[in-house]
Amino acid sequence: MKGLIKYTLSILLVLLCTEQFVGHHQNYFRALSDKLLLKLEMLKKRENDKLVFIGSSKTLDAVDSALFNDHFNEVSDKKMKSFNMATTGQNYKRIFHTIKKVLKSQVKVLVIETSYVNFLDGNLGFDESEKRNINKSNLSIEEDVQGFLSRNLHMVRLRKAFKPKSFLRLFMIFSSNIFNHDMWFRSNTIKQIISKFKVVQDFSSQDLIQPKIISSNINGDERFRNLINLLDTTEKKIIFINPPVAKEDHERECNDENHHSYKTLSKELDTKVYDYTCSAFDQKFMRDPTHLNSSGRSAFTKILVRDLQKEIEQEI
């Protein structure tokens, strides 16, 4: 009988302690519920980050921060430490929330993806009421995102906190300064862990593609008003990029309407937009019409260093 009592009490005791532990470390456990929160938590842990990339899966697949650091350090005498905060399944609200949080961090340069799906088309993942909220005020966007994230909190505590994936995520938070985090967030994670990252050797970044650099003073679109208001107050360096796409996506990405909006951004924030969607990017670098594959990532990361080096050097 003693054995049964000890067994039962031990289990109950551990469960109670666990519940207490989770309750006292809500930040970490919250971060397990959402990729965006996870990256924000990782950013807190990472010290000395100078540059972050913010965007969707397009940027996630287009930039390898470890490789970016290497290439940058090869061509510059300044030490680079960057962090790719882009995640899959992003939309305007979530990117807005990310930017707001990153602006409070030690980061000096924000490279923000401005692409069709994330900025110009507010419909992605939004229903009508959400779209109306976007147009109301900054606060309502923030409230919406916070509401969404907190709605998942009880789920996290009850169910997700002890998933194997969650342990992996906790590991990622605590090791975010050591490992290249990028590999965890892309498909084929297992393959990436066991295989060495391939650096594209036989390619000249100078010849491959050139960005359409937009900097203009044309008055324009109101769709970026919230974002502009937010970014206008910061001293940090803001650069906008739009990573390359395959031929199928050219028309959607590289058009007058988009460029008109980019001009607004450029003018209001006194910055540049590097739009790579108008150049022909070889099909062998694409995983699908929107996302780069590992070779493309390697190639494009090098291109970014080529194009952004001077701008960044002044800030870090």
Partner: peptide, 20 residues
Amino acid sequence: LFKQVSVSLLFIFLINSYAN
């Protein structure tokens, strides 16, 4: 007892986390 409790807890945690 340690192993009994550990394995049982492992099961509980797994059940808890997959129980959706």
